[in-house]
C-alpha cells in the first residue's frame, strides 16, 4: 500500500465508518453482551485466551472494587487538566490485569485485606467506610517508600507502591491520561526535525560545526 493510500484508509477509519448507515439504523438487540473486540493479529491461542478472559468473572469483590476505586482516585484525582483514575476506567483495567497475570492476585487481595485490618484497628472501620480524613491519614503512612516507617507498616508501603504503579500504568495508557501528558503522535505525519523555537530554546542547531 502506498503512503497516500494508507493516509486515506486511516482517515476513513478514524471517522468511525466501520458501521455503515444501514446497520447503524437497526437498534441493538436488547440484553446481549457486546461482542468482544480483539486486537488484530492475534494468534489462535491468544484470541481464545483473550475472549475467555474478557468474558470471565471479575476478580474484585464489590467491596474490594470500592476500595480500589477510592485508592485509585486518591493516587490520581481529577484536577484542572484531567479526570481521575476511576473516570479513566482504571479499576476495570486493574481487574483485568489480575485475571491476565494471576501472580499479582495474592499481593493485591492480601494488600487490600491488610489495609482493611489496619484501618479497623486504627479507626474502627474498613478503609472504604473510614472518613476521607482517616483515609488520607492512612495513605500518608504508606505512600512514601523512602521514609522510615514503623515495622508494622512496611508491607503497607510495598502494597501502596504496587497500587500506585498499577494506577499510573492504567491512567496514562487511557485516552484521558495520554491527553493529559500531551502525547500527540501515533498518527501519519512527516518528521521534519525539532521545531525551530525548541532548537532555539535549547541552544541547538542542525548545522554541523565547521570541521
Amino acid at each position: 500500500m502506498k503512503r497516500r493510500d494508507t493516509l486515506k484508509a486511516i482517515s476513513v477509519a478514524s471517522l468511525g465508518m466501520a458501521v455503515g448507515p444501514v446497520e447503524a439504523a437497526v437498534p441493538e438487540p436488547p440484553d446481549t453482551k457486546p461482542a468482544v473486540k480483539l486486537l488484530p493479529g492475534r494468534q489462535k491461542f491468544e484470541a481464545e485466551r483473550d475472549a475467555k478472559l474478557l468474558a470471565s468473572e471479575k476478580f474484585f469483590t464489590p467491596a474490594e472494587l470500592q476500595t480500589v476505586t477510592i485508592l485509585g482516585d486518591i493516587i490520581i484525582p481529577a484536577d484542572a487538566k484531567s479526570g481521575s483514575a476511576s473516570q479513566a476506567g482504571v479499576p476495570a483495567f486493574i481487574d483485568f490485569m489480575m485475571r491476565d497475570q494471576p501472580r499479582s492476585q495474592t499481593p493485591m487481595r492480601g494488600g487490600l485485606r491488610w489495609l482493611d485490618t489496619k484501618c479497623v484497628s486504627r479507626y474502627g472501620n474498613l478503609f472504604a467506610k473510614c472518613t476521607k480524613e482517616q483515609q488520607i491519614d492512612m495513605v500518608e503512612q504508606i505512600a512514601y517508600p523512602g521514609k522510615k516507617v514503623p515495622s508494622d507498616l512496611t508491607q503497607g508501603v510495598a502494597f501502596f507502591t504496587m497500587m500506585r504503579n498499577f494506577v499510573m500504568g492504567g491512567f496514562y495508557t487511557s485516552k484521558m491520561g495520554i491527553d493529559d501528558l500531551g502525547y500527540v503522535g501515533n498518527t501519519p505525519n512527516k518528521w521534519e526535525g525539532v521545531p525551530e523555537d525548541v532548537l532555539k530554546q535549547y541552544g541547538l542547531s542542525y548545522d554541523e560545526p565547521k570541521k
Binding site: P145, M168, F171, T173, G177, N186
Partner: peptide
Amino acid sequence: MPGYGFGGGIE
C-alpha cells in the same frame, strides 16, 4: 507513546 507500565517506579 505511553505503554504498559508507564509511570511505574516513579518513586
